Amino acid sequence: MEGRRERLWRTIAAWAAPSAEDRGRAQELCLSVVAEFAGVDAAMVTLWARGERAQEILGASDDWAAGVVETQYTVGEGPGVESLRGGDPVLVPDLRVEQVRWPGFAEEALSAGVRAMFAFPLQIGAIKMGTFELLRRRAGALAHEELTDAVLAADLIAAVLLRQADRAERAGEDFEPRLLTSFDDVNIATGMLAARLRIGLDEALARLRGHAFGRQRSVLAVARDVIEHRIALDDLAE
């Protein structure tokens, strides 16, 4: 246990180095977590902005993990969303028993092979930055030592992100970490739809999500179709 913890701490410490922002450290951390935690099949680090309207994948251990992040964002629910909102870890050792809690997400995630999920907020005080999440293909809780390490890792990741943002601000620069996937196109399409239909941004995002979910597509794909005028804004009026 101590060896695992020390290796994870070294990975996070390397990420915190002044020259590390653009070297894929979040991705390296996710891969390290999968290697070090028994029974954990995937890990991801996401950033959230403007409440829940904008999300970015900072790191994911594989495409499967990234797809689960995108599913949560499309349906607007799931352990990560709940963890971000409440500011506490959300531990789901068996997703099958939580289908009523998150009906849209649970159905899609179970179909994708997710059986257990553990979400930890990246938060310092009132500052909410994102989530650190772990996936399992079989049901079961994290071991006590793994849970402790995951909570500590989330705190350290939050501290690293806050330090990097502060460093960028003091240098007069925007905080632009290296991203695995950006959902900025969703933000753009949301603004376009809100302006066209004269509705609020939250309602516009809800319409994009409803359109995507009803057609079994990701909200990111729908947003890109809106931007490229492959979907008319008036088609989302209802």
Rank of each mutant, 00 (worst) to 15 (best):
A42N: 09
A43E: 07
M44F: 05
M44R: 06
V45H: 02
V45R: 02
T46H: 00
T46L: 00
T46N: 03
L47G: 09
A49D: 11
R50V: 08
E52C: 09
A54Q: 04
A54T: 06
I57M: 00
L58T: 11
A60H: 02
A60M: 01
S61G: 05
D62S: 05
D62Y: 01
D63R: 12
W64I: 14
A66Y: 09
A66F: 10
A66D: 10
G67S: 14
V69Q: 04
V69L: 02
E70L: 15
Q72Y: 06
Y73V: 14
T74S: 02
T74M: 00
T74W: 00
T74R: 00
V75E: 02
G76V: 06
G76R: 01
G76E: 01
G78N: 03
G78P: 06
P79I: 05
P79C: 04
P79M: 03
V81A: 12
V81M: 12
S83D: 07
S83I: 03
G86Y: 08
G86K: 13
G87N: 05
G87F: 08
D88K: 14
P89E: 04
V90G: 08
V90R: 11
V90Q: 09
L91N: 10
V92A: 12
V92Y: 09
D94I: 02
L95S: 05
R96W: 10
V97E: 03
E98G: 10
W102H: 08
W102S: 05
W102A: 11
P103T: 07
P103G: 00
A109R: 10
L110K: 04
L110G: 10
S111N: 13
S111R: 15
A112V: 12
A112T: 11
A112E: 07
R115P: 09
R115Q: 15
A116V: 02
M117K: 11
F118G: 12
A119N: 02
P121M: 12
P121D: 12
L122Y: 01
Q123M: 15
G125H: 01
G125D: 04
